[in-house]
């Protein structure tokens, strides 16, 4: 059981105010983990730390033998310009970047894989549509198709099922299960405990500090949920410098 991700005394935050505070945890390679916690608990911040867009204020994140470009990330709010004139097929094909790079040709096997990914998320027939003509759920399917093509060893999903209908969610959960079956490590920020209980074996509960981490049934207890809810959310402008772990 090797660790795909190790958080060592990890503190992440903005303007010196911690959002994730002294986190110690290990994410096992090939595990399917839900990250839960109240709003402002540091869930998205943790993912940003993992992909490296946010440098730790203290401590570190160790990637267990995974390269930076072996991480696929689905942000909570994507920066995608929906008015950009690009088709579903072309946007999905961007997931092949690691293989074809800036100059490589899109060969027939690549095209077949793009078609397969589009079909896997149930969007066959939409290939030539401009992305501006898609619904929110369809756009999310497009992004999942692109994640499929990235074939990353570590997949980070930030609230992938928010504002998504039941059928789309079932289809996309199928994709997540497929990744899990292929031995990829998946870390997903989620809010719906029913979904977590039904589909995610591991859970990491965060409320700025680590509340609990382990098998889902042991983490999602009433007591843990109460502890998470009582977390103080607002940053304190008069807070003292944190000395914990500074030794």
């Amino acid at each position: 059981m090797t660790a795909a991700l190790t958080f060592r005394n990890l503190t992440l935050g903005y303007d010196r105010h911690p959002v994730v505070h002294h986190l110690e945890a290990e994410i096992v390679e090939g595990s399917l983990t839900a990250v839960v916690g109240p709003n402002g608990a540091g869930k998205s911040t943790l993912l940003k730390g993992v992909i490296g867009t946010l440098a730790p204020l203290e401590g570190r994140i160790a990637l267990g033998g995974i390269n930076r470009d072996d991480i696929a990330y689905l942000p909570q709010q994507s920066d995608i310009d929906r008015s950009f004139p690009i088709s579903v097929r072309d946007l999905v094909a961007m997931g092949l970047w690691r293989e074809i790079g800036p100059f490589g040709r899109l060969r027939p096997p690549h095209r077949d894989r793009v078609a397969a990914a589009v079909s896997a998320v149930g969007l066959t027939g939409f290939e030539d549509r401009p992305i501006g003509a898609l619904s929110g759920g369809q756009m999310q399917r497009v992004l999942f198709a692109r994640l499929l093509l990235q074939e990353a060893r570590l997949v980070l999903l930030d609230e992938p099922f928010t504002a998504i209908d039941a059928r789309t969610m079932a289809d996309l959960l199928g994709v997540v299960r497929r990744w899990h079956g292929e031995g990829r490590t998946v870390l997903a920020v989620l809010h719906d405990f029913e979904t977590v209980r039904a589909h995610f074996p591991e859970t990491l509960m965060l409320a700025r500090e680590l509340v609990a981490h382990g098998p889902t049934a042991e983490v999602l207890t009433a007591e843990n949920q109460f502890r998470a809810r009582t977390m103080a959310e607002a940053p304190d402008p008069d807070a003292d410098v944190c000395e914990r772990g500074a030794a």
Partner: peptide, 19 residues
């Protein structure tokens, strides 16, 4: 520069994460 430029326009976040 065509492909990176299109990606930088359409989805800069992806370009930053893959290259």
């Amino acid at each position: 520069l065509f492909r990176p430029l299109v990606l930088e326009c359409a989805d800069p976040q992806l370009l930053r994460s893959v290259s």
